[in-house]
Design a protein around this nucleic acid. Structure first.
Lengths: 269, 269
DNA sequence: TGGCCGCATTGACGCAGATCAAATGTCTAT
DNA sequence: ATAGACATTTGATCTGCGTCAATGCGGCCA
């Protein structure tokens, strides 16, 4: 695991320039990070944010194909994706791989490792990717002091459970067509939340990864992309996707997927 | 839905008899509960346990078919199953049901509701079932005071994420035979942990529930049960299952599933 | 600039498991 | 007990998608 380091030397323990973006986006403080509205800092006030910030370690970027951690690695930290993307996967005894998820900026990885103190999945960069490392022991003790942080951590984990349940529905009862449609809509929504285009994006993962994730053969994924294109739902060019008819894509996915609703203020409490 | 009540009248708010098991197991304190080694109290010392106990509300039992909560219900509490069993499920627009999981004694339900403050799934009793209600606001504030409780809560949620991931593997790439085998082994292991027989038990859920949960038609489940029986793996009689050859069943499931190993101290780092 | 290699597309074919159908067994309420 | 509703089993048929196979297309390195 001996990974190279480089700009580490520049990061002095006492840094003053708070709002200045330093070298290569490395070391953007949480409060200056564009992801703070969707990442762990949600709902944490200015002072507490600084405390959270102080335990976070911003690593230098992973190259495409590099591992953030592997199956069985001792659990020490969770990670937040800052830029780029990851896939998490497990490998069965037969060497067969199962892709469990893709992580975009602002999303956390490693939460499934808390219970057994070791990672049940590996996490690999799909492209050049940088992450924030959040040592779990520190996070835990900070959480008991900052109630907003505790709450947000629980919320994020709860959301992950919910997302996994959603995936179980998709794997358990949707057709190939519905699965891919649902996947594209989900990706699109996640990009939008992060301020990227919802109608035009690049998929950093291969057809094989998509198929594996959706429980489909990669050939099926490929065929579906061409079918969707013929049906006027989207335009595909290699990794690049342009959604042309989101409505119809929703219909194909066999779910409401309005997803657009403003963060409805759920009554009280 | 007007559910009958009966022994409620016997459970007085001021109870003195701490170590005495009261009527029909109602109102067993955590410290006297046989599930305390696998439920939320894990790793919490005597005094703190009393504090946890004080926020928990032991409800009278649910009858078979009764709902603990429904989709969209406001989230206020998580629940621990004390006896009996539950299924959680969602219903798609087409009225089609997707079973997400089954809860046995000592397991928590409702953790997926934290993030949106409302329940994404319904929970229904598969048989006469009693639960402990744990108001979430209280639990949260207690968690920030009792570090063991915070840790255990995170562990339980992490475990749930891990289990869901395991289910995704099953739904994504296992054959019907492997799915049912894996399901039976999982149930067996869960029963064992709770001190019940691992080789002989009653399934409280229908074939249809099992099939739905595993992404299979109920006919397929039924056929597999007879096949397994013919292959000498087990004996089935209606809901009653007797595992005859656990080894072979493991092989059928296409996973190591030793599961029996003592909490192996994984070699450092 | 060309050749190679991994990824993607497209086609042909077969099978696991869904669906349809019907018979039988079992629980519940009167 | 008896009827009726429902759960389960078993059989027959059909089909969506996996598998195998061949070809096409970039991107990368020498």
């Amino acid at each position: 695991m001996g990974n190279q380091r480089s700009e580490r030397v520049f990061s002095m323990p006492t840094r003053k320039l708070e709002s200045v973006v330093s070298l290569r986006d490395i070391r953007v403080a949480c409060k200056a990070c564009s992801l703070k509205e969707i990442c762990l800092p949600v709902g944490i006030d200015r002072d507490d944010l600084e405390r959270l910030d102080s335990i976070i370690d911003r690593k230098h970027p992973l190259a495409r194909g590099e591992h953030l951690f592997r199956v069985g690695d001792r659990f020490q930290s969770i990670y937040a994706v800052r830029s780029g993307s990851l896939k998490t996967y497990s490998t069965s005894e037969g060497g067969h791989e199962q892709v469990m998820g893709f992580q975009l900026p602002g999303e956390l990885v490693g939460l499934d490792a808390i219970s057994e103190n070791q990672h049940p999945l590996a996490a690999k960069a799909l492209e050049t990717t940088s992450v924030c490392e959040i040592p779990f022991t520190d996070l835990e003790s900070l959480s008991s002091q900052i109630s907003g942080l505790q709450h947000q951590l629980l919320r994020v984990m709860s959301q992950e459970i919910r997302d996994d349940e959603q995936n179980m529905v998709i794997l358990g009862q949707k057709s190939a067509e519905q699965r891919l449609a649902a996947f594209l809509i989900s990706i699109s929504n996640r990009f939008r939340r992060r301020g990227f285009s919802a109608t035009q994006f690049n998929l950093s993962m291969s057809r094989s990864d998509i198929g594996n994730y959706l429980g489909l053969a990669l050939e099926t994924v490929s065929r579906l992309f061409t079918r969707f294109q013929n049906d006027g739902l989207l335009r595909v060019d290699r990794k690049h996707i342009e959604l042309l008819d989101r409505e119809k894509l929703c219909a194909y996915s066999g779910a409401h997927c309005s997803e657009q609703q403003p963060p409805q203020e759920s009554s009280g409490q």
